[in-house]
Amino acid sequence: LLYFELVYVMDGIVSYLKQYPEMQLDALFVDRVVNMLEEGIDVAVRIGELQDSTYKAIRVGAVRRVFCASTQYLKEHGYPKKPEDLSEHRMILARGLSPTNELRFSKQGKNTSVRVNPFLTVSDNFSAEKAVLSDMGITRLLSYQVAESLAGGALKVILSDYESRPVPVHVVHREGRYSSARTRTLIDWMVEHLRAQPSLN
Rank of each mutant, 00 (worst) to 15 (best):
E84D: 11
E88P: 01
G153A: 05
H89T: 02
Q108W: 11
A128P: 03
I92T: 13
G152W: 06
K82L: 08
E102M: 15
L141V: 12
R64M: 11
L93D: 01
R65T: 05
R46A: 14
G78N: 10
G48L: 05
G153K: 03
E88G: 03
K81Y: 12
A154L: 09
L50D: 07
G96A: 02
S143V: 13
L74D: 05
E49L: 06
K82Y: 02
S113F: 13
R115N: 10
I41P: 02
T71V: 10
S113T: 10
R65G: 12
Q108T: 06
E38H: 10
V45M: 07
G40Y: 10
D85M: 09
S70H: 01
L97Q: 08
Y144K: 00
G61K: 00
L37E: 14
S134L: 14
L86M: 09
V66D: 00
I92Q: 05
R104D: 06
L37G: 04
A147K: 02
S98A: 14
V122E: 03
M91P: 02
T112M: 12
I138W: 07
A57N: 12
F126Y: 10
L120E: 12
I47F: 04
M36K: 08
L133N: 13
K107Y: 09
R95Q: 11
E76M: 08
E76H: 07
L155I: 02
Y73G: 10
G137R: 12
E49N: 03
G78E: 02
R115H: 09
L86H: 00
E49T: 06
T139V: 10
A94W: 03
L37W: 03
F105I: 01
R90Y: 15
F67C: 00
M36N: 10
V146M: 03
E39Y: 08
K107C: 03
S53W: 04
K156A: 08
K107E: 07
